[in-house]
């Protein structure tokens, strides 16, 4: 069995304006497949099946050559949320601060409920070398609401005692 890392994008990926290509919407993952099944021989010899066989072959060969690299990364904090857009402050890996306005269309409807002032998100630009050429994809990943568990309560209690001992309040 061969382990192949397959290129994928979240459903928040945007269309590359230059190439007009639309990327598949699924998460980055690891897929296992049987090498013997990689190039299936068509049982029929119809033109349509031959074409699909060739296409599948090309895709499988080229998929191995596709590379992606994250070329831009920011941590963002949502400022104001308006009807069609939201504002945010972003910090890159070098500590540079940016202020930006994002269209809400960059967020999938399912994630719109996470769009609230003070919400955190990451914003990435990924460079993808495909057989059709180099493409760039931007992606917003919103942080979901933090689920509070019993274990979190224990951690919070320990942290509180360490960070804010009672003597700090006898001020």
């Amino acid at each position: 069995m061969e382990v192949v890392r397959v290129r994928s994008q979240s459903n928040l990926a945007t269309v590359d304006s230059a190439s007009r290509d639309i990327f598949n919407e699924h998460y980055f993952g690891i897929r296992q497949r049987d090498p013997e099944l990689e190039l299936p021989v068509p049982s029929k010899t119809g033109a349509e099946e031959i074409f699909s066989h060739i296409k599948l072959t090309v895709e499988n060969v080229c998929a191995k050559k596709e590379k992606e690299k994250q070329v831009g990364w920011w941590l963002g904090r949502i400022g104001e949320v308006h009807e069609e857009y939201f504002t945010a402050t972003l910090e890159d890996e070098h500590g540079r601060i940016s202020i930006a306005e994002f269209g809400k269309e960059e967020i999938t409807p399912a994630d719109l409920n996470l769009l609230a002032p003070n919400g955190r998100f990451s914003y990435t630009v990924t460079q993808m070398d495909k057989r059709t050429g180099r493409e760039y994809v931007s992606k917003i990943s919103l942080s979901g609401p933090a689920i509070w568990t019993k274990k979190d309560s224990e951690r919070a209690r320990e942290s509180y005692e360490k960070l804010f001992p009672e003597e700090l309040f006898e001020f």
């Binding site: 831009g72 202020i99 930006a100 306005e101 460079q127 760039y136």
Partner: peptide, 13 residues
């Protein structure tokens, strides 16, 4: 290339 992919209203402080 990265800058081109950022939203139009983006200012770096």
């Amino acid at each position: 290339a990265v800058a081109r992919r950022l939203p139009a209203k983006w200012k770096v402080i």
